[in-house]
Amino acid sequence: MEIIRVTNLKKQYGEVLAVDGISFCVREGEVFGFLGPNGAGKTSTINMMIGLSRPSGGQIVIDGIDAVKDVKKVQKIIGVVPDENNMYGEMDGFENLCFCAALYGMRKAEREKRAKELLEHFNLAAAGKRPFRAYSKGMKRKLTIAAGIIHDPKILFLDEPTTGIDVESARQIRELILGLKEQGKTIFITTHYIEEAQRVCDRIAFIVKGRIVKIGTVSDLLNDAVRGHKLSLKVSGSLNAIRGELETRFQNFRLEFSDENSLLITSKEPVALYPVIQWLDSKGISVYEAREIKPTLEDVFVKITAEKAKVEV
């Protein structure tokens, strides 16, 4: 069941059309990734959805509520984690969480209980009485995420959740995102990190220059992006002398030689490896490593942005 529906959404800043009539929907309980290069319109879109910016056109419906007309109703059921850690530096972690809970009208006992629970959950209990400004970047990020879910929202908007933090904290945050998904939360995430999106998202939309250019599940996007199969071979002898012969013998394949001991085979059909190994062996060359190259979302992203650039040229 869809919980967010965006239809023909537009945002114009003077002469610049930052968001150009995009439409998509997000299903309840899924992690939806919104990916795109800098300036693609990700933050403009998220800001319109959460009520920090007014659309120039189009419609946003969140959990059946018109998010343009009834923005305050929507803000009750959403949590937002901005790309910057915007907590109050002079207040400690516990006070910050209690304050954020109070903004949602939670009573003192309830907000203190919830703040303590979240500090425990995010491994910040020991730092609960320390001022926010004294936190490390990873701790700041975790507290900002905790503040985003203090009121137990149905939908969580995460803008670049792991930008600028260390590997370990980023891993913890990804685990937290997956934990929230297990609790049934719907998560809308924007990120620069394609690998991260591949790990946590159920579906992804690619936005380039204000337009959604591709949308689908991670596996659909991967299948669409790289039609064919890739195999990388490492061999013991030099391929230079037999290069022409190899290309003539295996005309169904596209062969790339990155150095004299490496061969990359690309084929529309699955590559039958045995004839290749056998043929190379007959030439006195042994294959000591064969690896299937699987496409990544990065390949999809590069392909999509390249296609978009070609269309515009």
Partner: peptide
């Protein structure tokens, strides 16, 4: 410092 966004995002008028 964008902490003001937190207030604008709260479900209060």
């Amino acid at each position: 410092s964008r902490s003001f966004d937190r207030l604008l995002l709260a479900p209060i008028s």
